[in-house]
């Protein structure tokens, strides 16, 4: 099958949705510009015109409300922000309106808006350009939160999000845009709230999401050589949570490590571990664990980010620790490029 990048898969999903339905519009700061939001929106304005594909003023809160209003009269807006951090100005419209509209008017008042938010990592993005806020959004009843890892899932989940009648936050990790994967040319949808067992295993359940799943996959291969068989689940959506798949896996393996891209306290990992402790406590052979960022804002300095962020090496070490095995270095997990970029293709600064 043909391989395309995650960014191309996103572009293809929007293009396909806009050709399927003239209800679909897309806007955001930079959408029609030459870079096209990390090339995810390239070519769309030429194809669908500037009434359906448009740039916007730096007015995050109003534009979210405008998206909501347009969806009330039958449109399916896709809004995008180049960084999740800018979108924080729109929490009133998101939480008080998008999440509540259907409920507070007694049902039959859906808001089918998709909000694409790019989350960052590395290259000195620092405290206000690289936050991972999936747990904040997942905390709000009425919102769906999607975080795909592969190009295949990006296309199928984005199409599903756009045609879903509820507000969906679609979080794209910046380091995934350049990754490639097999993506069918046809229209296909992936249900929101369904996770994917990337690799079956019997000794421990790893639940991961977004970019950290890529790192976990590398660690899992090396752990296999240590005779530890990991079952790796890519969460794909954090709300709703696919508890059926997660609990089934924990019951089988008896161990759990949740891997998150965000700060650890009050996070997705908190929720999964709380739920597991409450509902299937007796399945555990050892206490559930998590690997997430320490509770500090992300630093900018190249001298700090290497320690602050987790990667395959940390996943590998954490799993060994859970099995009471002595830590050991693994040269295969050392990256062949600088720690603050996803690969040599990434030239910064954006």
């Amino acid at each position: 099958m043909r391989k395309i990048s995650f960014a191309q898969a996103v572009n293809e999903a929007i293009d396909m949705a806009m050709s399927i339905s003239d209800e679909v519009i897309t806007f955001g700061l930079g959408v029609p510009d030459p870079k096209g939001v990390f090339s995810t929106t390239l070519g769309l304005q030429d194809k669908y015109g500037n009434e359906r594909v448009f740039d916007m003023p730096t007015s995050e809160n109003a534009m979210t409300g405008i998206g909501i209003g347009s969806s009330i009269v039958g449109l399916r807006p896709i809004m995008v922000h180049q960084r999740v951090d800018f979108f924080l100005l729109a929490l009133d419209q998101l939480i008080n309106n998008a999440a509540k509209w259907n409920f507070m008017f007694g049902g039959d008042n859906n808001i089918p808006i998709t909000i694409r938010l790019i989350v960052g990592h590395g290259w000195g993005q620092g405290p206000t350009h690289s936050q991972n806020l999936q747990s904040i959004f997942s905390h709000i009843p009425g919102l769906k939160v999607v975080m795909p890892t592969t190009a295949y899932d990006a296309k199928g989940l984005l199409l599903e999000s756009i045609f879903c009648d509820d507000p969906v936050l679609f979080l794209e990790h910046r380091w995934l845009h350049g990754t490639e994967g097999e993506v069918p040319e046809k229209d296909y949808r992936i249900a929101i709230g369904s996770s994917k067992v990337i690799k079956p295993g019997k000794d421990i359940t790893l639940v991961s999401l977004s970019y950290m799943t890529i790192e976990a996959m590398r660690a899992v291969e090396e752990l296999e050589k240590e005779d530890i068989s990991c079952e790796l689940i890519d969460l794909r959506s954090s709300s709703p949570l696919d508890w059926v798949t997660i609990s089934k896996s924990i019951k089988k393996t008896g161990r759990l490590l949740v891997i998150d891209t965000a700060n650890e306290s009050f996070s997705i990992s908190s929720e999964i571990i709380a739920k597991a402790s409450m509902e299937i406590f007796t399945s555990f052979k050892s206490p559930p664990q998590r690997l997430a960022l320490i509770d500090a804002p992300s630093p900018t300095s190249f001298g700090l980010t290497s320690t602050y962020y987790n990667g395959a090496e940390e996943v590998f070490a954490k799993v060994l620790e859970i099995f009471d095995q002595p830590s050991k270095p693994n040269d295969n997990l050392k990256s062949d490029h600088s720690h603050d970029i996803p690969g040599d293709w990434f030239k910064g600064p954006f």
Binding site: S70, V73, L75
Partner: peptide
């Protein structure tokens, strides 16, 4: 803004 969005639609 919701009213503006409705006008857009």
């Amino acid at each position: 803004p919701v009213a503006v969005g409705m006008a857009k639609g």
